[in-house]
């Protein structure tokens, strides 16, 4: 420790923020969809956000392997794709629950009780309401995330459950939602 060289010269690899998914397999249907998306743009690279959406829709998150595949498809370097996955918060870097609950935390929703709603949902699912970032319940059923403005400020608080949009959500509504999702199960 006394010689700074001794402890600081030990270099370490950069950690990949994305989870690995060795079984990543691309279906013919996804291949075709990606070709269609590429055809929408004069330059291939433009398709990358849309392709990421398609991949996430099918696999639930963006894995290291999918980034390699996407960058190959679009003649990009994998870092070009990683830059986007980590910039645009809708892209998941790790597997998440079957139901992704996004609760809007920005001002109008906060004025309308979003923090109380978020805390309630977290408590119901055994999650920490004060933790940062996305959290997934132990049973991998729910992921809860406090997100920025969902553009439904007039019907605060707003919430999304996967792609389903819910407005004026009360704690009772939230309980019902959790109940319904559990009923549907896996």
């Amino acid at each position: 420790m006394s010689d700074p060289r001794e402890f600081s010269s030990a270099v370490q690899p950069m950690v990949n923020p994305l989870a690995s998914s060795p079984q990543f397999h691309v279906s013919a249907e996804l291949e075709a969809e990606v070709q269609e998306l590429i055809s929408h743009y004069p330059e291939k690279r433009s398709a990358v956000l849309m392709v990421l959406h398609e991949v996430q829709e099918r696999f639930g998150f963006i894995s290291q392997e999918s980034v390699m595949w996407i960058s190959g498809k679009l003649d990009l370097q994998p870092i070009n794709v990683l830059e986007l996955v980590t910039f645009y918060p809708m892209f998941r870097q790790q597997p998440v629950g079957k139901y992704q609950v996004k609760i809007c935390r920005t001002l109008s929703c906060a004025l309308g009780g979003a923090y109380e709603l978020h805390e309630h949902v977290c408590n119901r699912l055994g999650l920490d309401a004060h933790a940062h970032g996305i959290q997934t319940s132990k049973d991998k059923m729910f992921s809860v995330e406090f997100v920025e403005c969902l553009a439904s400020c007039g019907t605060a608080p707003a919430m999304m459950v996967n792609e389903d949009f819910q407005e004026g959500v009360t704690t009772q509504n939230a309980d019902l939602m959790i109940h319904e999702c559990r009923k549907k199960g896996n």
């Binding site: 690899p13 950069m14 990949n16 290291q64 994998p78 870092i79 070009n80 990683l82 910039f87």
Partner: peptide
């Protein structure tokens, strides 16, 4: 490239490459 956003922006290569 840079990963993450805002004040958390971080210079990196693609890990493993």
């Amino acid at each position: 490239g840079f990963v993450n956003r805002g004040s958390y922006n971080t210079l990196t290569h693609f890990p493993g490459k």
